[in-house]
Amino acid sequence: DGTFYIENGELKYPLKNFRFNESPVIMLNNIDELGRPVRVGGDETNLSMMIPPMRLRDFTFTSLSDAV
């Protein structure tokens, strides 16, 4: 919820929310490709994480809803 398209540091418009109930274990079994991990997060209030981009097969979204 609350996902927005940001361009040049400015909020442009709300995006649709994608809802899913995919198991993380099944998702990890369906990895076709992994990219180089990138650091996300990391300010004075939280820890940063290294997360690789993933290409998955058979990932199922269950519904869309407005982001407002």
Rank of each mutant, 00 (worst) to 15 (best):
D1I: 08
D1M: 12
D1A: 10
D1S: 10
G2T: 07
G2P: 00
G2F: 02
T3M: 06
T3P: 02
T3Y: 09
T3L: 11
T3E: 01
T3K: 13
T3Q: 13
F4A: 09
F4C: 10
F4S: 10
F4R: 13
Y5N: 09
I6T: 07
I6A: 06
I6D: 12
E7W: 09
N8M: 03
N8H: 06
G9T: 10
E10G: 08
L11W: 10
L11S: 05
L11C: 07
L11A: 07
K12Q: 11
K12C: 08
Y13D: 12
Y13F: 09
Y13N: 13
P14D: 02
P14C: 05
P14S: 05
P14R: 06
L15A: 15
L15S: 15
L15W: 09
L15P: 11
L15G: 13
N17I: 12
F18N: 08
F18I: 15
R19G: 07
R19W: 10
F20R: 06
F20A: 09
F20C: 11
F20M: 05
N21C: 13
N21Y: 14
N21A: 14
E22P: 03
E22G: 04
S23G: 08
P24I: 10
P24N: 04
V25N: 11
I26P: 06
I26M: 11
M27E: 01
M27V: 13
M27K: 12
L28Q: 03
N29D: 01
N29W: 00
N29F: 02
N30S: 07
N30V: 04
N30T: 04
I31L: 08
I31A: 11
D32E: 15
E33C: 08
E33N: 11
E33W: 11
E33R: 12
L34D: 12
L34M: 13
L34C: 10
L34G: 09
G35N: 06
V38Y: 10
R39S: 09
R39Q: 11
V40W: 14
G41F: 02
G41C: 04
G41R: 03
G42S: 04
G42K: 02
G42N: 03
G42I: 03
D43S: 15
E44V: 07
T45K: 13
N46R: 11
L47N: 04
L47K: 03
S48K: 09
S48I: 05
S48V: 07
S48C: 10
M49H: 15
M50Y: 09
M50L: 11
M50P: 01
I51Y: 07
I51F: 12
P53V: 04
P53C: 07
P53N: 05
P53A: 05
P53S: 05
M54F: 07
M54H: 03
M54Y: 01
M54A: 13
M54N: 00
L56E: 00
R57A: 14
R57Y: 14
R57V: 14
D58L: 02
D58M: 02
D58T: 02
F59P: 01
F59S: 02
F59K: 03
T60L: 08
T60C: 05
F61A: 00
F61C: 00
F61E: 00
T62Y: 09
T62P: 00
T62K: 13
L64W: 01
L64G: 01
S65G: 05
S65A: 08
S65N: 05
D66Y: 01
A67I: 00
V68C: 01
V68N: 03
V68Q: 03
